[in-house]
Design a protein around this nucleic acid. Sequence first.
DNA 1: CCAAAAGTGTTTTCTCTACACCCATGT
DNA 2: ACATGGGTGTAGAGAAAACACTTTTGG
Lengths: 233, 233
Amino acid sequence: MKNYSKYPKYYVAVDCVIFGYDIRKKLLKLLLVKRNIDPGKGSWSLAGGFVKEKESLDDAAARILRKLTGISTVLLIQSRTYGDTDRDPGARVISTSYYALTGTSEINHELVKDNGAHWRSVEDLPKLVFDHSKMVNQALHDLQNLLKTKPVGFELLPEKFTLVQLQELYEAILQVKVDKRNFRKKILSMDILEKLEEKEKQTSKKGAWYYTFKKERYDKLSMNGFSFNLDVS
Amino acid sequence: MKNYSKYPKYYVAVDCVIFGYDIRKKLLKLLLVKRNIDPGKGSWSLAGGFVKEKESLDDAAARILRKLTGISTVLLIQSRTYGDTDRDPGARVISTSYYALTGTSEINHELVKDNGAHWRSVEDLPKLVFDHSKMVNQALHDLQNLLKTKPVGFELLPEKFTLVQLQELYEAILQVKVDKRNFRKKILSMDILEKLEEKEKQTSKKGAWYYTFKKERYDKLSMNGFSFNLDVS
DNA sequence: CCAAAAGTGTTTTCTCTACACCCATGT
DNA sequence: ACATGGGTGTAGAGAAAACACTTTTGG
């Protein structure tokens, strides 16, 4: 429009930090792709793309996530916007990073493979293109904070999970050791988990009870001033 | 550059949520301007502007803050990026909001006046243009979180302040009532304040001791694992 | 001398932490 | 019968919350 026309325009992109959790190896993973466009073609990169004319930033992030994994209903949270002049040597590009929490079960693994994407442990990441490593660090930090104050750990686990698995997830992401009894006491006292009449029997002879997250119960409690807190030591 | 040329470009802006604290009235204030460009010319608005070719987003926010207030050394923190397609009816504009904490004393009030800016209490804001009200709400939320976990309250107070004033600031921003004895116990036990040999005598006959924030002391403690916490009830 | 705001400790409650043994079952 | 991982309770320390009176001094 006329009024703005003397001002410059820039490319606007989004980049997705896609977190997944490997329940067997107890590792937080990240979905990376090989960049298919210059500059930096062939480098490891976050899944990203330019924002289209008729889509919001949020929609662009959702589209990129969907295209790569087939998932559409996950937590997808805006993290930070990166706007240094020389962050992309190809041109001035402003990029907003989002992070996603994906239960690995909902993922379309064929699609992931076809897109040339790979899961990598966050503790063993390759060099990433541009400022993508900064994006990962920031997103990881955001995730750690979120995990302490919102019940989002369940997003990274299957529908049914054991308390041991939940604890291991907290230990893996927050990088701490947690006391088993204290952890169970805290999480169970919140009354947001439901114990099922079914056991997980792969990892032990005795078997461990499955639980599910009672979302409606949590929502109701939240409305009455309850706030989730699991600032584990 | 060649490779990106098939993708669209957009205007990129920043908007500043400039917080100030009125120590006498015990109110958190916000610096607003009248928008001088269509669309929305004449509406109340945050201080904002387009990002120039050779400046980062952070630099753009700092420039806008400086132009309006004369201040250059304040906390200026990125909040969130707003990218809905129709947020600005004039054109597609992606805008990143920043919030600033300003001690009202450092402000060049002449400059503020010349720019047609006005301080308004956050509890009594006019309708703002576009999605600027959302920006304010988000920034206020961010500020409240920050205040609990980082010693930033001092940024909004003069160099010398009394414990009563500090407590009132917390009460005003977090919207809670705080027990005087518990508040003092907590903040003093952190050993990050220095008591001066001077009293504030305007507001009472007895007078209240002035304190200053010991920044170096806080930095040293932080390095040794101390973390500020004032999650007052 | 009195009004107005500043300053000060103690008790109780709750939350956090540390810690070690029994249970169930498949092989 | 035994090895493997799952599950459980309690006591002590420390932090948070509740609570009311004394001090100072300008007018």
